[in-house]
Amino acid sequence: MSGIKLTNVTKLYQEGDFKTIALDNISLNVASGEFVAIIGPSGSGKSTFLSIAGALLQASEGQVVIDNVDIASLSERKLSEVRLAKIGFILQTSNLLPYLTVMDQLLIVKKMSGSIKAADREHAKELLTEIGLGKKLDKYPHQLSGGERQRTAIARAFMNDPSIILADEPTANLDTKRAHEVVSLIAKEVKARNKAAVMVTHDERMLPYCDRVYRIEDGRLTEE
């Protein structure tokens, strides 16, 4: 099954005699074409969840399967290949490189995994046009609005045709109108391109765009 599946995942942090349970035996299954939201207060385990789902952090117990591959047993090199090929990240801040044009923000993703081909330029142009940035290909981040920067980041997340999209508070720095534009755009692209997507958010106004909503509190996950 393509998508992402977490089964009985626990994450413990041990400092001396103190043990902190960041994630407590959570299970979640997100199939291709599904857009799932996880809400919860600060310190509830949202960031730990995203780090484990994004192959940035290893679970203490349990299984994380991305596109039928259990990532727990992979070497660091294989994990970085999974992150590059299988996962698209959309962060709170757009994290664009100030010295690259909108077009080059996407092409650098291809450069990281090899060389840039003519088809890659076409794909980047198609993605950017689709999200309303077709006339901004040569602009630099400082020439864009906050919403345009975040849309560039969304296009970049889809550039490598990943199976999984992970969004970390993608509306944190946007006003209400731009926030709705950004999340509706993520939802639209997830459906159109058949990706499994998880968005961590504080912003409950964005939940109607999602197929399912989960709440995380004290490291425990429950469906709303």
Rank of each mutant, 00 (worst) to 15 (best):
N95A: 08
E169T: 11
S145A: 11
D138M: 10
L28T: 02
S42T: 12
S73Y: 07
E181R: 00
Y13C: 07
K195P: 09
V198S: 12
Y140K: 13
L56I: 14
A31F: 11
R149H: 00
Y140N: 06
K19C: 06
K125M: 10
E224F: 08
S60K: 09
A53G: 03
N29I: 00
A179S: 15
A124S: 14
A124D: 07
A197T: 01
L133M: 06
A172V: 02
S184Y: 06
T129Y: 08
G147H: 12
G62N: 05
I154Y: 08
I21N: 01
L107R: 02
I216Q: 05
Q63K: 14
G146M: 11
L97V: 14
E181G: 01
K125A: 15
I164S: 08
G132D: 06
V30T: 06
E130Y: 13
A157E: 07
D175C: 01
Q14R: 15
D211W: 07
S184C: 01
G219L: 05
K78I: 00
N68R: 05
Q58N: 13
L100N: 01
P141K: 11
I108V: 14
L28F: 03
I21T: 15
R156D: 01
K177T: 10
E61G: 02
H180K: 10
H123S: 03
P170H: 14
D168Q: 05
Q105N: 15
S27N: 01
I131F: 08
N160G: 07
G16W: 02
A124K: 09
I90Q: 11
S60I: 02
A85W: 07
L106M: 14
G114E: 02
K191M: 01
M199Q: 03
T201M: 04
Y99F: 12
I108K: 00
I4L: 12
F49L: 15
K136C: 03
R83E: 02
L221N: 03
L133Y: 09
T152E: 08
L100G: 02
L56C: 11
H180F: 13
N95V: 00
P41V: 02
T171A: 09
R220P: 00
G54S: 09
Y13A: 10
T129N: 15
D168V: 04
I38K: 12
T222Y: 08
T222C: 04
S145P: 11
T201G: 03
E148G: 05
G33E: 02
L57R: 09
H180P: 00
I21G: 01
D138N: 15
A157K: 10
L128P: 09
E181T: 08
E169F: 05
E130V: 00
S27Q: 00
E15I: 08
L50P: 04
S80C: 11
A37R: 09
H202V: 05
T222F: 07
V213L: 05
L221C: 03
L207S: 05
Q143I: 00
L107G: 03
S113L: 10
V69D: 06
T10I: 11
T129P: 01
H180G: 00
A197C: 06
A167L: 13
E130M: 07
A197M: 03
R178M: 15
E81N: 03
E223Q: 14
L79W: 08
V64Y: 12
I116E: 04
R178N: 15
A172R: 08
L107W: 09
K78D: 14
F158G: 04
I165S: 10
A37N: 06
R151M: 03
I164H: 09
V9H: 04
H202G: 11
L23E: 07
V200Y: 14
